[in-house]
Computed example of a mutant assay.
Amino acid sequence: MSRAVPTVAILALPNVIPLDLSIPAHVLGTQDGYDVSVCTEDLTGLKRADIVVVPGYENPERPPAEEYLDALSEAHDRGARMVAICTGTFALAATGLLDGRDATTHWKYLDSLRELHPLVKVHENRLFVEDGNLLTSAGAGAGIDACLHLIRADFGVVAAHEAGKDVVASPARDGAQPQYVDVLSPVRADLSPIRGWVMAHLGDAITVDVLAERSHLGRRTFIRHFERETGLSPMRWVMLQRILSARRLLETSDWSVDRIAAATGFGTGSNFRSVFRREVGTTPTAYRKVNSPNNDG
């Protein structure tokens, strides 16, 4: 028995921003396994969608018409995942769905979002924020990240990697990364070589001191430069790379959990299972059953 095909409805509100509309239409529309449609005045598609995407639109301080807000609320109430790109967050906020929830939007509109919707927990300078079945993202580029996040959640790391290659984007930018960097990085702050070294040595014992020494920087200077470049602490970044590598191995190999744990730097299978459940929300074995290409349902 094959898995059900998730249906995706992209709601093009009046004055929709064309780029914000085209991003989910392309990234999700070309992904095998999604049934994607675009809705305008006819909101029938929202009534059956598993995922509803709201692209950004002009003048977000003006709430959309009631029929749109009602359709979004009804979709959420029956269990659809809700995704907002850029100012699309304002439409979700206008329904009240974001009250008391974590969210973000394009940095230019953060103050307006706070002022108009004070009950929303607004996060600054984040690519995207996920709170349960609500996913909000920043400007257009972050919309790609949000779409790849959906693909990674539904179809695995390999599928997200292929989709990322198609749009020439990183397939695994963490939502906590900043939308922008407000200072210029010093010349010596280019740490891409050390990140490449980490990817080739994920199974090794890696510490901040090891990374700083290999980068010929003091510990505090290294941490500051690394966070400036990636938006993440060094060890958080390393852990996320280990999780992504482990997910890829679970999807594409028949290696045992213990072998994957050793190869990706988690040490024991027990530690790997604990961290994997915390970060991914399921066990390695359950993840493999759902995402292995040999899985039939």
Rank of each mutant, 00 (worst) to 15 (best):
L135E: 03
T230R: 15
V27N: 03
D204W: 08
D32Y: 00
D209W: 02
P60L: 07
Y109L: 13
D131T: 06
E251L: 06
P193M: 08
H123L: 14
S256H: 09
L232W: 04
D42I: 09
N59I: 01
F155Q: 07
R242N: 11
F276S: 02
E162C: 09
L244G: 08
R126P: 13
F226E: 14
A25K: 04
I17Q: 04
F276C: 01
R101M: 12
A153D: 09
P293G: 05
G100K: 07
S112P: 10
S292W: 02
E66I: 11
T282E: 02
L244S: 12
P118D: 15
V54E: 04
A140Q: 00
M82L: 14
D209N: 07
V275F: 02
V257Y: 12
N271C: 00
D99V: 03
S245L: 05
D154R: 10
W197I: 04
V183L: 11
T283A: 04
V38A: 00
S253R: 05
Q31I: 01
N59T: 05
L113I: 07
K121I: 15
P293H: 06
D258I: 14
G156H: 06
G218D: 13
R219T: 14
G29N: 00
S253I: 05
A176Q: 14
H26D: 07
T285Q: 06
G100H: 09
R247Y: 09
I223E: 13
R126C: 15
C39N: 12
A160W: 06
G231C: 08
S112M: 07
G175W: 10
L191E: 09
D42Y: 08
V158W: 11
I223W: 05
A91L: 11
I223R: 01
E41L: 04
G297V: 12
A189L: 07
T104N: 13
L43A: 03
L119K: 15
V27F: 05
T87P: 04
R228A: 15
F276I: 01
G100M: 15
L250P: 01
S73Y: 03
R114S: 14
V290D: 02
T268S: 13
S245E: 05
D111N: 09
R81D: 13
D70Q: 12
G141M: 06
I10N: 09
A140I: 15
R62S: 09
A75L: 03
L72T: 00
M199N: 11
C147P: 02
K47T: 10
G265D: 02
S137T: 11
P293Q: 08
L249R: 14
T230S: 14
H26F: 02
T95V: 09
R81K: 13
E115R: 15
G29I: 01
T105E: 03
S2A: 15
A103K: 10
H106F: 13
I206H: 10
L244V: 08
E41D: 09
G267Y: 02
G203N: 02
F276T: 00
P55A: 01
L21C: 07
V54K: 06
N295T: 10
H76L: 08
F222E: 12
G45V: 03
R214K: 15
D166P: 07
G164Y: 01
G132K: 05
V168M: 11
F226N: 12
L19K: 01
G203C: 09
P178W: 01
M1A: 15
E124V: 12
D296E: 12
Y287L: 02
A25S: 07
S137D: 08
C147D: 12
L110R: 14
A159Y: 09
L46K: 04
Y287S: 02
T136L: 10
